[in-house]
Every structure is written in structure tokens, then in C-alpha cells.
Design a protein around this nucleic acid. Sequence first.
RNA 1: GCCGCUGUGGCGAAAUCGGCAGACGCAAAGGACUUAAAAUCCUUCGGAGGAAACUCCGUACCGGUUCAAGUCCGGUCAGCGGCACCA
Length: 800
Amino acid sequence: MDYKSVEQKWKDFWEKNGINRFDSESDAKKYYVLEMFSYPSGSNLHLGHWYNYGPADSFARFKRMQGYNVFQPMGFDSFGLPAENYAIKTGVHPEDSTNKNIATMEKQLRSIGGMFDWSAFMYTSSPEYYKWTQWLFLQLYKHGLAYQKQSPVNWCTSCNTVIANEQVVDGKCERCGADVVRKNMTQWFFKITEYAEELLECLDKLDWPEKTLTMQRNWIGKSEGGEVVFPIGEDKITVFTTRADTLMGVSYVVLAPEHPLVDKITTPDCKKAVEEYKLAASKASDIDRLSTAKEKTGVFTGAYCTHPISGENIPVWIADYCLATYGTGAVMGVPAHDTRDFEFAKKFGHKITRVIKAASGEDELPYVEHGILVGSGSFDGLTTAEGKKAILGFLAERGLGGIKINYRLRDWSVSRQRYWGAPIPIIHCDHCGAVPVPEKDLPVRLPYDVNFTPDGQSPLRKCDSFIDTVCPICGAPAHRDPDTLDTFVCSSWYYLRYPDSKNGDQPFDPALINKMLPVDKYVGGAEHACMHLLYSRFITKALRDMGYLKFDEPFTSLVHQGLILGTDGEKMSKSKGNTVNPDEFIQAYGSDVLRMYLMFGFSYAEGGPWNDDGIKSISKFLDRVERIVDTAIASRGKSTDASSRRELEYAVNYCIKRVTEDMEHFSFNTAVARIMELVNTMYKCESCDLLFDACEKLIRVMAPIAPHFAEEMHERMGFAPSIFNEQFPICDESKLVKDEVEIAIQVNSKMRAKMVVSTSLDDEGIKSAVLGDSKITELLSGAAVKKVIVIKGRLVNIIV
RNA sequence: GCCGCUGUGGCGAAAUCGGCAGACGCAAAGGACUUAAAAUCCUUCGGAGGAAACUCCGUACCGGUUCAAGUCCGGUCAGCGGCACCA
């Protein structure tokens, strides 16, 4: 078969006849299948794109054939650093290179033969899109969920921009691998922490991979503990602790060097040392500062606070092992029951007081497990759990603390000092402060002529025609915010735009979106677990609370595809030279073959090393199907043999049943295996008079997996296109009932024989049939039967 | 250090609720067809022993539960991923 012309023929047919489009008139149940959109990079589609989009498209087609009104859109996440870095290197403007890449990639995506509804196409760097990204920013601002603050931020020394906590990996930039340092800057933040509890709770009702749920849970990092107040003169130091039961073992209190109380309480004689320590701490990069291997450091402030229960004087230190950004920025030091405090106390000579004993009596300090309170006055004898409750209760009554929940999650920093992104729609006025751009003035257009060579400043700051403006409130000269939004802001709401992507008046029509969303099946890489997938959930909840949306979660069901590795088992990369170009395989075999091989050769969620050999076998398999179809057509209507009807009917219906289940679970490799089994049976039953009928069902079962091929075969068999207007075959369970079944015979749990028994027999019947069989009695050679276990349709175990 | 996932033939992988381990395919070997090759078709294909019927062993390792364990439980090792001075 000439794959190239056949595939083109059907691509054109689908496009012309609207087979790929969502039918807004239909009253069939909607099904929104979404694959994570991609960044339009310069090179061709790589195998990773194919592996994501090909099998997921087969799933979408399967759903369509099951009668759903499927919506499967495609677009691009086209703002971002690569285009800008490329521009810096080559001088090609990001807008030009991006538009060119989008055109190329769109063409290539069409070559997959996906059922993408191109009428919904959009990309995030177009003003028609980022207008609404800016609108989203303004809504968050209006509702107090976007705010500006000066704070230590992660600064990538190579990208010359701030990046989010989620984008710092091992103290390095997730994108370029350069060192990340802390810088104090005024930045915009989204208040994702306001939703910490709901983001955590709702995870339970999502059909997501367990791994991803766990990662989000850990990332949110809920920690249930308490706050304890240590008065210090007029002021008070509040610490967060999960071990309030160890309160009587406190021998010092530590503040983070950045803690606001530090300057106030430091005594004159300690001033010099404290200032020096603060300076050193601010210079250290996160990687140095957060290294667990590093020896503890710290200095005394000269001040003492008061223990809330004993009234004892407790020395106050500063140390960088106490983080300003978590809890209250202050911790109580309990050396006997915390390994860090123990280390610190040893070094600086703090006393180490045991207040917990292991229930078993056997322990040694530092003892960090739960146990029984000792040396804690009236609290002695309580367990850790009881002690926490009693001590926090005691403190709460006196206004010195109480139960407190903390989250590890921080607010999302969204300002980027880069050019290629959506401008932040804020105007800074000397009189009125930060003023949101009126919605009628959106979009704030990204100017074309800008010098974006990175020098640590936002490129837009140097563009006067952009920066200089007037205050929308008082009319005085003012300047625009020079930063752009993190591209994760663009991608945090794109799934809401697709169903209404051409709407010029609103980001989306809420009535429509509430019908089309949530996404029923979301498919994409696992690397977005704590970024895109978390941000999108937050934005959905925020828009819901503003009244735009009526659902709580954007993605009901999520699947991660695995990673296709190079033939050497390593991650594909140009530098390693192990990349595999899908184009040569499409040239040689066609896109159906590549797609089907990707579905058959790997466990979808696992992925694995690429292997050239397997792909040929799929090509041979399609040839094999074509031959049996031709045989079926040729023999149709002629009197053929009726003998193997039962076998063929069974094989067809078994295949339908299993493929239906497998497709539903993204178990594509077994689905293809079941289809191969059916074809093997068809070759055995070549002369059966049901062959044509069986072939017709086979082709429909195959259609989602090899769409062009199936469409061609369907037409060749004399049916009117498109096969995607046909129903996916439904299993006739009655054809799966067999008269006889082969079961295994075990003696003392060891496999000894096989035997064919009638399926009409009950357990007793099977038992007597087996024990009555001469071969079995011979096997038992007169041994006394103690017990017989019968598993219907599977095996009989005889215990002697 | 903590959390999670994974570990099955020469290879990619299957195995519903604990019930015949290795489906389906690749590679390999032998055979048929062919002048020959390709394509196609048939056979073998976890290991050891045996002429064969068949027997024993086998799902990273050690132990347990069970009539029965790749599957459940406890421990160990290895690989991958995530978090990590989070109080």
C-alpha cells in the first residue's frame, strides 16, 4: 500500500468533512481530551511529541467511536526563554522565530493524523491570548490574590531573571543549570498559599497517578503543630513547632538572620558579630546555606526571652539553619530531641535537657522519636500525643500559643526580568502607587523593537515608548511595570480558552466553559507535577471563587506518558548524539506504523529505550491485515466453510472486550497484542463464512490505533467513509461462553495434568469428574484424598 | 536522611480478586516455496537433566502467611523519581 498517498487522502477527507471537529450542535455527551501543549522549538517534532500526541489521539478517537462528542484541541505555549536566548545568540527576533516555528510544527502535528480540532487553535504569545492572561492578572489583583512585596527571590545568574521556587532544582536553574542566588527584590506574587488546604484536600477526589498526588502533597507540605510565644521585654518571639511536648527541654531560641526582631533585641556588645553574621548569611547562595552537610553556625544576640511555662531566661541566637521563609522564622532549640538542635548545642555549649523517654526505656540522645514526657513537671508521664495537646492547651489559656498548621508551600512569584512574555498590566505612579491598567486598555502590547540583551534589568525598562505612560487615575506621568509574567501563568488557564478561543469580548464564555470543562482526560509529562499542574488547580479555584467557574478542579483524570530514551537507554539529547528522528520512519512506513509501534512497544506510562527493529514488525502486521481483508473481500458471497464459526466468533468478541478495557486504561500495548491475536485466529479460520464480518469488526477495533489504514480498509470493503462515524464494536458476551474449558490439575499444589471439563458443571461436578478420570486416579496412585479445592474455570488442587 | 515507584527469558513486555509464569512481538535456529534473494508460510525458542514420556529448578535476595505467592506481609540489595537544616 502506498502509505503516503493513502494517509494524505484521509487527512484531507477528515479536515474537509469536519471529522476532527467538536460538534457544538450534537447532544451526545462531551468528552474533553487534552494533551499538554508544547513549546514551539526550532527543530522538528521529536519522538517525545509523537509519544504524547499519537497514543492520546487514539484514545480520543476511541472515545469518539464510543459515541462521545470529543473535543481535542491543539495550540502552543509560545512565550518563554528559549526564543529569547536564541534571539540573543542569533539576532533573530523572538516573535519572528516563534511564528516560524509555530508554522512548521503545526504542519508536523498535522502529519501525525491527530483528530485535533484546529478551529480552536491558539498560542499564548498572540495579543488575542495574552490580553486575557493580563485580564487574569487583574482579576487576581482585584481579589487580593496578586500582590507585590520585597522579598528574597531566586535569581538565576545565567538567565538573569527571577525564577519560582518550583523552578529551582538542587540550587540550580531548572532550565539552564546555572547557579541560583538569593536577591532581595520587589516582585509580584500570586497568593497560592491561600488555597493550600483546598489544594491538598481535593487531591483525594482526583483520578491522577498516585506518584503525582504524593508529590503535590509533599510540595504543599502540611505540618500540624503549634505556636509557642516566648516574651522578650515588650515584644514576643513566636516559634512554630511540631513537638510542643518537648517544650520543657528548650535551652535556647533561634531567629533567622532576616527576622525583623533581630536589630531591636541585639545588645550593643553583640551588635558587631550579629551584623557580620547577617551579612555573610545574605551573601551565601541557597545551595551553600541549605546544605545539610554544612556545620552549624550562629551568633548570640545578647538578649534573653522568657520561657512561657517555667519563666526561665532563654538565650536568643541567630543562625541560618533557621529559615525566614518557613513558619515564623523562629525556632525553639531542644537539643535532647532534635538532631539539628543537638548539633548546635554541642558546638555552642547549650545545655541538653532530656524531657522525653522511649516507652521501651532504651534510647540515647538525641532521641527524636515519640515517647513519654519526663522532667516536665505536671506533664510528666504523658505520651507525646497527649503532651502536645496538654501543653498547647495550657499555653492557649494564657495567650501564649496554641494549635497551628503550617504549609511548606510558598506564594508563587510571577515577575520575570525578561522580554518574551506577557507584560504585567500595572502602572506605577508616584502619587497613586501601583495602579492596574483599566481592562478596556488591554492588551498591554509587548513592543517589538526592544534591546533584550540581558544585563540584570528588565529589557522593557530600557524601552521608553513602552515604559513611559500616564497614570490612569490622576493623569500624572507614570511608568509601566517593566517585568513580564512567568510563562506558567500563560499555561495555567489555556484549557479554559480552547473551547472559546476566538472570543474577543471575554477570556471565555462562562456558560460555555462550565459545560465543556473540566478536562476529562489530560495527558502529559510527569515533570509538571508541582508546577503547571499545581498552578492550574489554583487558578481554577481562584476563578471559581470569583464566580466565573462552577467546577473545582480543571483535570478530572490525568495520565503521564513515559519517556522514550535513546537506543543507549539514556535520555535523548543533541549533545549525547542519541536522538532519534521520527521523520525517517514516517518516510519509510507512514505515520500509522510509527504511532502503532509507539503504542505496542512500550508500556505507555513507563516508556523506555527506542529500538528500530520493532517498527518493521508493525509494518508487516498491517500488510498481514491488508491481506486478510482482501481474502475476506474475495471470498464474500461465495459459499465458504461454516466449521470454524465458534472459534472466530469467540476470538472477535474476546478481542473487542479486551481492547475496549485496555484502551480505557491507556494499556495500549496489550490492546495491540489482542488485535494481533485476533488476526492470527483469522488466518487459521481463513475459509470460515464469517471472515468478512470478522474483518469488518477488526477494522473498526483498529481504527483508533491505525486511523488512516483503517479508513482505507473500511472503504475498500465497500463501506462509506468515515469509519469514525461508526460505533466502536460492542462485545457479544454470549459468544464468549464456551461449552468446555481446559483446567489445570494440581496434586499437593504442584502442576500435574490438564483436563478438559464441561463449563456447565458446578464445583461438586468438576470434583467428581476430575477424581473419576482414569488419568488422575493413576496420578494419585491410591493416595488418600484429604481435600479438593476447585476454582471454576481455572484449576483443581487435590491435597493427598 | 525521608517519601514514592520499579526489579519477570537474549530483548520490548504480559499475567483481572492470590489460581496453569512468560500472552503479544523482536532477535535467533531449523524447514517449505524460489535458479536465488526478498516476501510469505510452518516448527523450535527460560534453565538443567532425559532418546522420549517426563522430572527438577526458575519472577533481584532472605524469611513469613496460604491448599496455592511475580502478586499479600516483614527484612535486605539495586535502579529511577521526588523532597531535604520545613523546626
